[in-house]
Design a protein around this nucleic acid. Structure first.
Length: 571
RNA sequence: CGGAGCGUAGCUCAGCCUGGUAGAGCGCCAGCUUUGGGAGCUGGAUGUCGCAGGUUCGAAUCCUGUCGCUCCGACCA
């Protein structure tokens, strides 16, 4: 491609709306243009990268036995009512674009395709002989994000690959899931990410098990925890952990109410009470749909709201307002405790709250704390469960190692759905005994446009993007100088032709610009290899070869340069 | 959803408080010089000041509404 005809001019100034490196660089390199909040045009450079990513995904999906199709983005309300997700996706979470057409029927733009794919496959599957099946598509998805941000990272319109497996039983699902898991590893490895696969919460999609593929980057929105000794790795939303255990007191002391003015925050409180932090207790009051719950965690922990919501099976979980807390506990925020709450409040506690003797908790009275509290004697046993947020430094749940934290960008998420959709929508088959059974499903998503953004987030420097050869828009940036010189111009044109004829993708900067502008643009666009011709190189009879990651260029013959390009780009 | 901020030239922004009919830098166009990391000089073009009302002799500026964009958000007991 001749750069003089290329659409996607570079920007010298940093666009004000860009909060992250990837967003800023994509705008500056002319990869994207914003059309409205969270909606972007993919300009030619990025379009090429997206196609390359899509191609890698296609190849790996196909290798794993999945077949490509394309489903409608525009979907009827009735289908979503059949699966039972309409209300949640529209009224409750509002994540789905929905609207009436001219006939008055309601449609939506699909944020995901479980309903449609189940509709397709339930007509396809009759017998166990028709299983397993697996299909995928690469398509534009729509999510009415509460707050779109970071460019392509959290957009309202984005490109995603989603695959769906259909099996006769759980064993079949395990096999399908494993094939997809392997495919996802291969995709990440082929692109070249530094990444981790982690255990994850399955969220709104539902289902029993899931893994996320996280590209490691400091600006990632997710926190992943992984063990320094074993293979355990999980999203913080899902992660379990073992807390350090302390020897309990040998005898119960009498419960006491202690005045401690304005003591909010467990560190200060523990110091004041002269007890270790692990003996303090945080009690948080939540509104969970229609019920009110109090959740207790050890003072050195925080509540993992996702675990609580999953335990309760509620749709919405949020901290109670200050007024509500005052109404329930009679105290200002900060002094809630499990003793003396109104009868309707359901009391739950993280399991590590148990096993302590003479612990502290809020007294439901402003500025007062109870100490030497003991279950059974002072209050009934609450419902115990795993409700704490695991954090770096906690013990690994599976071995004696410690958890470490890293930030990541979630690019892929695979789920064992089970029969949630097939059951609701009647996707069944007859087994060998002629008995009707429900198909067991899995779903496997990976964000194509987000993968491009994640790559840049992980691979850039002060000057610009550093593409990997596998997903770079072009392999080579041909940047001749002194184009006014006939000889240079002639050689540049000839080299441009030769590279193309050899199947090397080349962006040819044929603009009559100065060296500084060309090189700065080349660094910004970040193609893997830069080739430069000039009066100097003509005299030397060689061409200048520089990788984006090299500091200095080297002089090579055209043949040698092409050989190097082939080697680097795996051509 | 709540809170806040911003919409002025292609881009980044000043001007607004204190009303008098619009500016800078970069970019763009022409010419000359320059020519290996965004060079210099000279000349030039460019705006429904987001939109709609209102106040006023007069509105980018004040008021109201509206649309768009951006940022922040339960101080965890």
């Amino acid at each position: 491609m001749r750069q003089s005809r290329h659409v996607g001019r570079t920007l010298r100034e940093v666009p004000k709306d860009a909060q992250t490196a990837a967003h800023s660089l994509m705008l500056r390199a002319g990869c994207i243009q914003q059309l409205s909040a969270g909606v972007y045009s993919y300009l030619p450079l990025l379009h090429r990268t997206l196609n390359k990513i899509a191609q890698i995904i296609r190849e790996e999906m196909t290798r794993a036995g999945s077949e490509e199709l394309l489903m409608p983005a525009l979907q009827p309300r009735e289908l979503w009512e059949e699966s039972g997700r309409w209300e949640r996706y529209t009224a409750v979470d509002g994540i789905m674009f929905a609207f009436k057409d001219r006939r008055g029927s309601t449609s939506c733009l699909g944020p995901t395709h479980e309903e449609v794919v189940t509709e397709i496959l339930r007509r396809e599957i009759n017998s166990y002989k028709d299983l397993p099946k697996c299909v995928f598509q690469i398509q534009t998805k729509f999510r009415d994000e509460i707050r779109p941000r970071f460019g392509l990272m959290r957009a309202r319109e984005f490109i995603m690959k989603d695959a769906y497996s259909f099996d006769a039983d759980d064993a079949g699902l395990e096999a399908s899931y494993e094939a997809m898991r392997q495919a996802y590893h291969r995709i990440c490895q082929r692109v070249g990410y530094k990444y981790r696969a982690v255990e994850a919460d399955s969220g709104a999609i539902g289902g029993s098990g899931s893994s996320e593929f996280m590209v490691l980057a400091d600006t990632g929105e997710e926190v992943v925890l992984f063990c320094d000794r074993c293979e355990y790795a999980a999203n913080q939303e899902k992660a379990a952990s073992k807390l350090e255990q302390f020897a309990p007191d040998t005898a119960q002391a009498p419960m006491e109410e202690v005045f401690g003015e304005g003591l909010i925050g467990v560190e200060r409180l523990a110091k004041f009470l002269q007890i270790p932090v692990w003996k303090t207790t945080k009690t948080l009051i939540y509104e969970a749909d229609e019920q009110t719950v109090a959740v207790m965690v050890r003072g050195d922990c925080d509540v993992n709201e996702i675990k609580v919501a999953n335990f309760l099976g509620c749709r919405a979980l949020k901290l109670a307002s200050a007024e509500r807390i005052k109404g329930l506990t009679g105290a200002e925020v900060g002094y809630a405790g499990p003793i003396g709450l109104p009868a309707g409040v359901r009391v739950m506690a993280d399991q590590d709250v148990n096993g302590r003797v003479n612990f502290e908790c809020g007294a439901n009275k402003t500025n007062y704390h109870n100490i030497n509290v003991n279950f059974v004697r002072d209050l009934p046993l609450p419902e115990f469960g795993d409700f704490k947020l695991a954090k770096a430094g906690d013990g690994c749940p599976h071995c004696a190692g410690r958890l470490q934290a890293a930030r990541g960008i979630e690019i892929g998420h695979i789920f064992k759905l089970g029969t949630k959709y097939s059951g609701a929508m009647g996707c069944t088959y007859l087994d060998t005994n002629g008995k009707t059974r429900t198909v067991v499903m899995g779903c496997y998503g990976i964000g194509v446009s987000r993968m491009a953004a994640a790559w840049i987030e992980q691979s850039h420097d002060a000057k610009g993007i550093i593409w990997s050869p596998q997903i770079a828009p072009y392999h080579v940036h041909l940047t001749p100088l002194n184009l006014e010189d006939e000889t240079v111009r002639g050689q540049a044109e000839a080299l441009y032709e030769r590279l193309q004829s050899e199947g090397i993708e080349v962006l040819y900067d044929d603009r009559p610009l100065r060296a500084g502008e060309k090189f700065s643009d080349a660094d910004l666009l970040g193609l893997p290899i830069r080739l430069t011709l000039s009066k100097r190189t003509v005299e030397a009879g060689q061409i200048e070869f520089k990788r984006r990651t090299d500091a200095k260029p080297e002089l090579l013959s055209a043949d040698d340069a092409i050989a190097r390009i082939r080697e680097i780009c795996g051509l």
